[in-house]
Design a protein around this nucleic acid. Structure first.
Lengths: 135, 135
DNA sequence: GAGCAATGGTTTGTATTACCAACTACCCTG
DNA sequence: CAGGGTAGTTGGTAATACAAACCATTGCTC
């Protein structure tokens, strides 16, 4: 199991590295890691509060405040759900979409020095292996 | 640059996945992600406050509280630095070391379902590619 | 070697994040 | 239509993080 430990360690360290990049990129636009992630998730989806909490692994009570703040900034909006009056749907606004796109571009730019150390073949290989792990 | 976006996306998604595992593993022992990381960093090092803050990318004022709490729990300890009386060195205690080891084992266990989808050769390859990215 | 700017940490104040428990509104089943 | 279950919000508490103000010590400069 020595080989496991080696991959695990590499995965953990690269996760921290990536998180560092995301944190900084987000902070530049007053977005926490969680808020950044919310924007990412809602980019192509409209979800109810509970579903969103599920995606994030957070408590629903945490979502209220999170969405409150993002809504106050005009990045997200709440809407009612036609089928069930208890449900609150959350979706991204044009402003949120625009910001999400901008930050994503910055993230790619900041990640480039790292991924740039790979040649195209290696990049494809890494992507493939990570997809396998994520499957 | 399409290939870049693919790797970047895979890296970001796997980072979130790994963070999820770390968060849960830490939470099971009342350790935040940051505290977990501190333990990991101090496992084989003795650092001054500012250095530790540097490793974590955090403000030094944040460190005070972080180390306070960990010290109160007996996981870390502060010591004076012989050469400079302003400096506070931080190091891990035996209890902290023991806990760090236990959590690491749990992390490996929880990561196993993911990394287990790779055969030994692929694991080695992934580790190698990630090391390159981290270089 | 006295004076002073720079460095290392702590303290204080504020905002955010996160949890849990309690509550309200609504849904659905019998 | 009564009662249990589900969806979100609210209120309380703790941890995390930053910035600014503050000591103590260091080390430069004259």
């Amino acid at each position: 199991m020595t080989s496991d430990a080696v991959v695990d360690d590499a995965l953990v360290r690269s996760a921290f590295r990536v998180m560092g990049v995301l944190t900084r990129a987000g902070a530049a636009h007053d977005l926490s890691l969680t808020q950044l992630r919310v924007l990412g998730i809602l980019r192509d989806r409209r979800l109810r509060m509970t579903e969103l909490a599920g995606y994030l692994g957070l408590d629903k009570s945490t979502m209220s405040g999170l969405v409150d703040r993002a809504e106050r900034r005009g990045l997200l909006a709440r809407g009612r759900n036609p089928g069930d009056k208890r449900v609150v749907d959350v979706f991204i606004t044009p402003a949120g979409l625009e910001l999400a796109g901008r930050v994503q571009a910055e993230i790619q730019r900041d990640l480039a020095p790292a991924t740039g150390r790979l040649d195209p073949r290696q990049r494809a290989q890494l992507a493939e292996l990570l997809e396998l792990v994520l499957a």
